[in-house]
């Protein structure tokens, strides 16, 4: 029993600490990347190449005065950032960074909570993601916040549908909800060089999912919840110092979780990148390390993609967003699902 608790605690610490610890790095990438794309320098004063900039930001957030406006609803105002962060972190519990490995003669699953409903669980929990924003907007007792929160919530609920059609299509294809068997299906090569990734089988679902990720994590081009030109700052107008920073962290963690799921479904999860087999050899330890490395590389590329899109596409208008979600992506998703089901049926019989 003690051993189990210890194992779970260690895994939980790693799995929560790693994404939270990587947020400063993402911040640097984001701000320097923005500079790179807009032909300017970006923050480069703190430390070598501006690498210490997020540290300075953290100190700024920690030591700034915390202003709590008098018109807010105090209890909900305080717990809203916590709800956002906790709900964002929870799906990490089922995301594995490597295949199960043997340690001290015992098989250890790298994820905290091993269940054969992995994908399903992750989406069930991330469906709660809109509560943090909704509570924040309502508790701030400010019309702009409320509008931002309602927009964010409607947007997340709408895009969850097309996201779900993409996931269901992939689950049909792999015939399993278990993340490890989904990854196992994607290990190997076609014709000796093309990885068996879901992306090459289901490009439509991949695009649907990708658009859904941007809408779910409220990133540009879908950051209508914040829309500076219309809503000042959306749901976090009234938040300052560390509470604001927690919202920021929740947004980044949500982004990481969704990109992790995207990679698991469409880019082979922790399966090795092409060419990495040569490095592994026979060593089991080396295999695990390389799997973790592959996963991290894939996630980093996804994060770069997020930054790239953010500074390339302008923000959508709200009615355009809703039309895209309900009239374009959802029918496309359902059509794709029907085709997938038919193909899987005729493949199996």
């Amino acid at each position: 029993m003690l051993e189990l608790i210890l194992e779970t605690l260690i895994k939980a610490a790693i799995i929560v600490g790693l994404p939270l610890g990587s947020i400063p790095i993402i911040l640097v990438v984001e701000r320097r990347g923005a500079g790179f794309m807009q032909k300017r320098l970006g923050p480069n004063r703190v430390g070598p190449f501006g690498l210490m900039q997020p540290l300075a930001d953290v100190f700024k957030f920690l030591f700034k005065e915390e202003v709590e406006p008098s018109h807010v609803r105090p209890f909900f105002y305080t717990i809203a950032p916590l709800i956002a962060l906790v709900v964002a972190v929870m799906p990490l519990a089922v995301i594995p960074v490597a295949a199960p490995f043997d340690f001290n003669g015992k098989t250890i699953f790298p994820e905290v909570f091993h269940t054969d409903l992995g994908i399903f669980f992750a989406f069930a929990v991330s469906a709660l993601g809109s509560y943090g924003i909704l509570v924040a907007g309502w508790a701030s007792n400010n019309k702009f916040s409320m509008l931002g929160a309602l927009r964010a919530c409607a947007q997340m609920v709408s895009y969850e549908l097309s996201l779900t059609t993409a996931i269901v299509a992939m689950i049909f294809l792999y015939g399993s909800n278990d993340i490890h068997s989904i990854v196992a299906e994607q290990t190997g090569y076609w014709f000796g060089f093309l990885p068996k990734w879901g992306f090459f089988v289901q490009p439509v679902a991949a695009v649907l999912f990708l658009v859904g990720i941007f809408a779910e994590s409220n990133r540009l081009p879908f950051d209508l919840a914040e829309g500076e030109s219309e809503l000042v700052a959306g749901y976090h107008i009234e938040y300052s110092s560390i509470k604001f920073a927690i919202f920021f962290m929740a947004e980044y963690v949500h982004m990481l979780v969704l990109s992790g799921l995207f990679i698991i479904l469409f880019f082979g999860g922790y399966s090795l990148l092409p060419g990495m087999e040569l490095l592994v050899g026979d060593s089991a330890l080396m295999l695990t390390i390389m799997q973790v490395l592959s996963f991290i590389i894939k996630i980093s590329l996804m994060v770069w993609f997020f930054v790239w899109v953010r500074w390339t596409l302008p923000r959508f208008r709200y009615d355009q967003l809703m039309m895209l979600g309900w009239e374009r992506l959802l029918p496309l998703g359902i059509f794709n699902l029907i085709i997938t089901v038919l193909v899987v049926h005729f493949r199996n019989h």
């Binding site: 069930a124 929160a149 609920v157």
Partner: peptide, 16 residues
């Protein structure tokens, strides 16, 4: 997914 994620959110939405 359904009750907590969708049904309860509708309630909160309407109440707001």
């Amino acid at each position: 997914l359904v009750n907590a994620g969708a049904v309860a959110i509708l309630f909160v939405f309407v109440m707001m």
